[in-house]
């Protein structure tokens, strides 16, 4: 008799919910071809194809993404608690979450551990395969609550997936072809009143310095050409795109990485009289879909 001990922090999926969720989208739903999907930029996709084996290497090219992911997850958890989607006590049903552009599944697994039932989707088959491989070997207790499919958010909307109680797309929007349409599809996936989390980089001199020059050309910790300044989105622009798509931004915070201590801090957007100081480079934004 073998028992696997669960940490009891998160709720378990109730059988009922699992049936309801997966009757719409069975576990073996086929991966889709994403080449012709409008948000896909093949060049951007190829960047991640080549390093998809390193997603879970905490010392590899995604080292600081791991660090940043811890801070992002804490931020997401706090907002989900504020909005009453997660509660301190065990919940009967796990709220549904979708992580768009899941890459190797760093954020998707974290969402599962917070107590959500998470679906990670990505346009690159290599990423989806890497995410599935990690999940199956790394954590059998988490596996029932986390799933991956190769598809884009437009395809998820077309399939009528959801509605989701939490939509995340972290460090993705700077790599998609039509940000406005992409954001609209994220809002479409969310249930009314549900939060949409987006994180990206501001289009600023600071962002160019800390997100391109230093990591790609000086430290070499990120492959050259991973990011281009013109694809970065300032928070106000993103707020306007979200508003047009039917979601109101409720909070914007900066994500500041301290590479020496390998820690990431969530900081306020404005520091006293200095507006936008905290969001000069990386930031995370929480918007709520209109009811």
């Amino acid at each position: 008799m073998l028992r696997q001990l669960a940490t009891r922090t998160g709720p378990r999926s109730s059988q009922h919910l699992r049936r309801a969720f997966f009757s719409q989208q069975p576990l073996n739903a086929p991966d889709l071809s994403t080449e012709t999907s409008p948000s896909v930029n093949q060049d951007e996709l190829d960047k991640f194809r080549h390093i998809s084996a390193s997603w879970w290497d905490a010392q590899g090219p995604f080292k600081y993404l791991h660090t940043m992911n811890h801070a992002r997850t804490r931020y997401i958890r706090d907002r989900l608690m504020d909005l009453g989607i997660l509660t301190r006590n065990q919940q009967e049903e796990r709220p549904l979450a979708i992580d768009v552009g899941c890459g190797g599944g760093l954020a998707t697994e974290a969402l599962g551990r917070l107590g959500l039932s998470a679906l990670g989707i990505d346009a690159a088959q290599e990423n989806v395969s890497a995410a599935r491989a990690h999940l199956s070997t790394a954590d059998p207790l988490l596996a029932p609550h986390v799933h991956y499919r190769r598809m884009t958010s437009e395809q998820a909307v077309a399939e009528n997936l959801g509605p989701f109680s939490c939509v995340t797309s972290l460090e993705v929007i700077e790599h998609v072809e039509h940000p406005t349409d992409f954001v609209r599809s994220l809002v479409d996936l969310a249930a009314p009143g549900a939060p949409i989390f987006l994180s990206t980089m501001n289009r600023s001199a600071v962002a160019w310095l800390v997100d391109i020059l230093v990591p790609e050309y000086i430290l070499g910790s990120v492959p050259k050409g991973t990011h281009r300044l013109e694809t970065f989105v300032p928070p106000d622009e993103l707020r306007d795109i979200l508003r047009a798509a039917g979601a109101e931004t409720i909070d914007v915070r900066g994500l500041v990485l301290d590479p020496l201590a390998n820690r990431c801090h969530v900081v306020d957007r404005h520091w006293g009289p200095f507006s936008n100081v905290g969001v000069q480079a990386n930031y995370i934004l929480c918007a709520v879909k209109n009811k």
């Binding site: 008799m1 073998l2 028992r3 696997q4 001990l5 199956s136 070997t137 954590d139 059998p140 207790l141």
Partner: peptide
């Protein structure tokens, strides 16, 4: 490990096995 899961497995005198993160 047990099967493909590389988590420690503790076997007790009452034949119970417990596996944990």
């Amino acid at each position: 490990e047990y099967g493909s899961v590389r988590w420690p497995v503790v076997t007790l005198s009452d034949k119970t096995s417990l596996q944990a993160r």
